[in-house]
């Protein structure tokens, strides 16, 4: 009979613990290939550190013909994608979805957008400016980047891990994937979402606050 006195406080404690476990905050993974390096500690011992995939320094021209570099996104998180202005297949859907996120965070300067054109022949900055204006994008928070074929295609495939190619057999001459790639302020890839898939776009919308909360710490 004596043990019965402990049952209530104990079960109460259990419930509290369960709730505490639920509240454990979610963190986004760091994606991409990893490497290791040996680090010498102050006391002379060595330990092994993980080197995560990082977006390297880059320099393109934006829609205002100004340079856009890695520093443009210093201490910001951003969503990167690859498109071209005359594309009528997946790009309009991707940018319709990106625009809703852009509008959702219009008061938050810590969330930026970077769209690279893969049409290096036609999409010069003035064309990008026209496109941005018509999409309803104003200001520097959404950067449209123009660069040489080599530089853009290389950063797409080697760094953002998005497949892009010129294909003369395709109706519009270019083929590319519709990933929206989420990059944190350390330039690590924290998520990749199919910009044409409503469920994955919804997931991206859920993941942005998680990443923002992490960056605040």
């Amino acid at each position: 009979m004596k043990s019965a006195r402990y049952i209530y406080p104990l079960s109460f404690l259990c419930i509290i613990l369960l709730f505490a476990a639920c509240k454990q905050s979610r963190t986004l993974p760091i994606l991409g290939p990893r490497d290791t390096k040996e680090v010498k500690n102050a006391d002379g011992t060595t330990t092994v550190d993980t080197v995560y995939k990082t977006i390297p320094a880059f320099s393109f021209l934006n829609q205002d013909s100004l340079p856009v570099t890695g520093d443009t996104f210093k201490n910001k998180i951003y969503i990167a994608d690859f498109f071209f202005t005359s594309c009528t297949t997946i790009c309009p859907t991707m940018h319709r979805n990106m625009k809703t996120i852009f509008d959702e965070y219009k008061d938050n300067p810590d969330v930026m957008f970077l769209s690279h054109t893969i049409d290096f022949k036609y999409d010069i900055p003035s064309k990008l400016k026209k496109y941005a204006t018509k999409l309803g994008v104003d200001g520097a928070r959404w950067q449209f980047a123009y660069g040489s074929k080599d530089s853009v295609y290389k950063i797409a495939e080697k760094d953002y891990l998005v497949a892009v190619m010129e294909d003369s057999t395709a109706k519009e001459n270019y083929v590319h994937q519709g990933w929206l790639v989420l990059i944190d302020k350390d330039k690590h890839i924290r998520g990749a979402y199919d910009g044409t898939n409503p469920e994955q776009v919804a997931q991206l919308k859920k993941d942005i606050p998680v990443l923002l909360a992490e960056e605040k710490k």
Binding site: T88, T93, R96, K99, K134
Partner: peptide
């Protein structure tokens, strides 16, 4: 639908 949207809403001043 890619361009004109699921509800025929178009896309900004592009479509």
């Amino acid at each position: 639908q890619n361009c004109h949207g699921a509800n025929g809403e178009g896309l900004g001043k592009l479509v």
